[in-house]
Simulated assay, not measured.
Amino acid sequence: MQFDRSFSADLIGPDELDMLDFVFKSELRKRRLSRRSEEAERLAAKLIGLYQSGLRDAPELSTAVAACYPHRHTALRFSKNHSSR
């Protein structure tokens, strides 16, 4: 199987996946959502889309999600571990 290197810029590596998972789980807790809910699926898709559009750190992603769901969310505060990598 041949790997297309032009696609590699869109891949999400282990560190990025950990950061996305952290933001996703934080958002689930804030919203009191089940991980298996339809809203959680939409949230996950939105976070990945935002990441792929260029938002690369947890505070930026949280703020962007807040803009999408202003009535149910306030931006999270993050430790240095989960900001820009």
Rank of each mutant, 00 (worst) to 15 (best):
F78I: 00
S53Y: 07
A44R: 15
N81Q: 14
C68T: 12
S53D: 13
H73I: 05
I48V: 15
P14R: 02
S53K: 08
R5E: 14
R31L: 15
F3D: 10
Q2L: 09
S26Q: 11
S37P: 11
R72E: 11
S8F: 13
P59G: 06
F24I: 02
R56K: 15
M1N: 04
A9S: 09
R31Q: 14
L50A: 09
L76Q: 08
A64I: 04
S53G: 03
K30N: 13
A45C: 11
S79F: 04
E27G: 00
A45S: 13
E60T: 01
A64G: 02
R77F: 09
A44D: 12
L76E: 07
R35D: 15
L50S: 05
S79P: 03
L17N: 09
E27P: 00
L33W: 12
Y69F: 13
L50Y: 06
L28M: 10
S84K: 14
T74G: 02
D21A: 03
S53F: 03
A58K: 00
A64E: 08
F3G: 01
K46Y: 14
R32A: 12
H73N: 06
G49M: 03
P59T: 06
R77V: 13
R77W: 08
L47I: 07
E60S: 11
A40E: 02
L76Y: 04
R29M: 13
S37A: 05
R36C: 06
P70D: 03
R35P: 11
A64F: 08
K80D: 11
R29Q: 14
R35S: 15
G13L: 11
N81G: 04
R35W: 13
